[in-house]
Amino acid sequence: MTVKELVNELVEKHGTTHNSLMPVLQGVVQQERYLSEEAMLTIAEALDISAAEVYGTASFYTFLDTVPRGKNVIRVCKTISCHMQGKDEIIQALEDALKIKVGETTDNKRFTLLTANCLGWCHKGPVMLVNDEVYPELTPQKAVEIIQEYERNTK
């Protein structure tokens, strides 16, 4: 499915009012992992709003990326509780395993490694999010195993 088809399908489902903007943006990100220029322009046209407004809304939300991301997006919580429970070691282990730095995407476009503000799992930190899945009480080894599992399941 092209981005245009995806947007049209989402607009069909959610409608063309201003309120539809968020679910349409979320729907695109869920499929594509990010909002391309073409996606945002198509959404703007479908909802009859300006492209700048679409970008303004998208850029407000951390989870609505406007730069290309890998098939799987890893977000390690960087806030104070997770920090004190060892998030730096988790990040280090993931960086080593994936051979990328925070903010980067692997060459095979399978993983993007990011940090996130508080994910609300302070009692079970350190925690990371892979796409929509939460992984609490991580150790460096556990984190790497989880990623390897994704690696195996990603075609």
């Binding site: 220029e37 945002m40 300006s50 492209a51 700048a52 407004e53 679409v54 970008y55 303004g56 850029s59 407000f60 406007t66």
Partner: peptide, 15 residues
């Protein structure tokens, strides 16, 4: 439009 948030908030154009 208003883009980004917090300390990064700016008045800007599409992308």
């Amino acid at each position: 439009a208003v883009v980004n948030k917090g300390e990064h908030q700016a008045i800007s154009t599409f992308l």
